[in-house]
Amino acid sequence: MTRFEPKIVVFLCNWCSYAGADLAGTSRIQYAPNARAIRLMCSGRVEPYFILEALHKGADGVLVLGCHPGECHYLEGNYRTVGRMALLKKVLSQFGIEKERVRLDWVSASEGARFATIVNEMTETIRTLGPFEEKDA
């Protein structure tokens, strides 16, 4: 039987987490090929709606990675993300969706290894959970 390969959408902010992902690259740190990154300027641009859309369109998990608290290039954007994601997680669990399918975390520009670890962890977590399926009818 072939192993389930989860599809993961990752939102990266330009200044920290995207740079961290770049560093993972230049440092040749190997990680699971399941993630597809979308670059935004700030994690504050991530609308919870995007996350729902991603799941709705077939993603099995969604990662949102921003600058560490206090390090946001735009001062406070990542705090807005904290508030939204905290609420979204509560709502998702009321929707019966495993909260592990959505993860908010922080990666700085020097944390290439951390980026790789998070993507690997997420891939494994989602692999264990299995594909995301909406219930219908």
Binding site: L40, M41, C42, G44, R45, V46, E47, H73, Y74, E76, G77, R80, R84
Partner: peptide, 10 residues
């Protein structure tokens, strides 16, 4: 405006 998009998201 610095273009961070936080307001857009909000």
């Amino acid at each position: 405006c610095k273009g961070c998009g936080t307001c857009v998201g909000a």
